[in-house]
Structures are given as structure tokens and as C-alpha cells.
Amino acid sequence: MYNLIGAGLIVIGGGIGLGQIGGKAMEGIARQPEAAGKIQTAMIIIGALLEGLAFGALLLGK
């Protein structure tokens, strides 16, 4: 039961983080479309780092 609540919290946190990354990246691309490629790569890397954290927490809670 508690680990399910924990999993929910992790997903909320991860969702907020991913939303921030994605939203800011889109803003960046809209302002500077020629930098879209670089922004995308950086976005994916930071998304992956966040994902690593979230999955680590999910596995520890399991």
C-alpha cells in the first residue's frame, strides 16, 4: 500500500520534471528554430537523467 503511494509521488515528481523540460525546450525551439537540433539533444539527455532518478526510486520502493 505505502509503496503504491510512493510510486504515485515519484510519478508526480517525474511528470512535473518532464513537463518543465519539454515545455522549456519547446519555448526555446519557438524562439530559435535554427537551434532545434541542439535543444532536442539536450532535452533528451536531461529527460534521461530524470528518468534514471525516477526509475531508481521506483526500484528501491519495490
Binding site: A48, L49, E51, L53, G56
Partner: peptide, 11 residues
Amino acid sequence: PFSLLVRLFAN
């Protein structure tokens, strides 16, 4: 390394 291995495995 832990983040590398957990990401691939968990995904």
C-alpha cells in the same frame, strides 16, 4: 553506472 543500468533495465 547505476543510472545507466537501471534506465535500460527498467524501461
